[in-house]
Amino acid sequence: MRRAYYLVPPLPNCIIAPDMWSFFHKLGSPPWLYSISGAILRWLLPITLVALAIGLVWGVLFTAPDFRQGNSYRIIYIHVPSSVVALAGYYVMALAGAVSLIWKMKMADVAMQACAPIGAALTFLALITGSIWGKPTWGTWWVWDARVTSMLILLFLYLGVIALYEAYDNKVAAGKACAVLSLVGMVNIPIIYKSVDWWYSLHQPASIKFTGESTIDTSMLYPLFLMIAAFYALFTCCMLMNMRVEILRRESSTGWVKRLLFRQEHD
């Protein structure tokens, strides 16, 4: 059997320690993944919500206003984390896709599918907050700035993956096709970002000066870092919750899901 799509050969046993292998095998088992993700969510979700609340209150209420932009800059506490995590989310999705293609791990498929809608939502959030921020800063809702344009293309890439998944009737094949597409997207993202950057530097209109580097005060940075960390955690939580739903849907005819539902009804 020839596997032309192998980008990397399967890792030989000697590279990964044996207990690591058993960990991988467990990762591939739906019941184990379902229970471990439940355990992770039980402590990660409250921490995420608390961190989000602290970061927001700290950033919005307890930092000094910017000397040029006044209070409007505070939207960065949503805008920056969502754009950072949206981009990272695409890579998580593509890597999960690679794992599913190379090692044929079904749960990697599930993880990839779980990423796409969250990533698209975060990209959309980044675009919306960016445009709200743009109104007082640049005087217009939409500017074809390099970063805005790149985010827009990222949204298209996410929507492409979601649309491809929906178009297939056979969901196993859909997962594989999306894995290939997200890998293609992953290779292309740096190229797209660099081209758009370059395109913008070529066309930069004189009216918008964004080149003068506005240094940000460290007191404003700490809540930003907290928010970025909290958004990463939020992404993880949403991904795990999506995965749990998808695991239950795929395994709905198996014994362990039936036992689980029975137990929950009688608790």
């Binding site: 059997m1 044929k104 056979n170 196993v172 094949a173 594989k176």
Partner: peptide, 14 residues
């Protein structure tokens, strides 16, 4: 023949 590659268990050697 190797046209189906996913969704089944077991191996085929050709």
């Amino acid at each position: 023949v190797g046209l189906s590659r996913y969704g089944f268990d077991g191996t085929v050697t050709r």
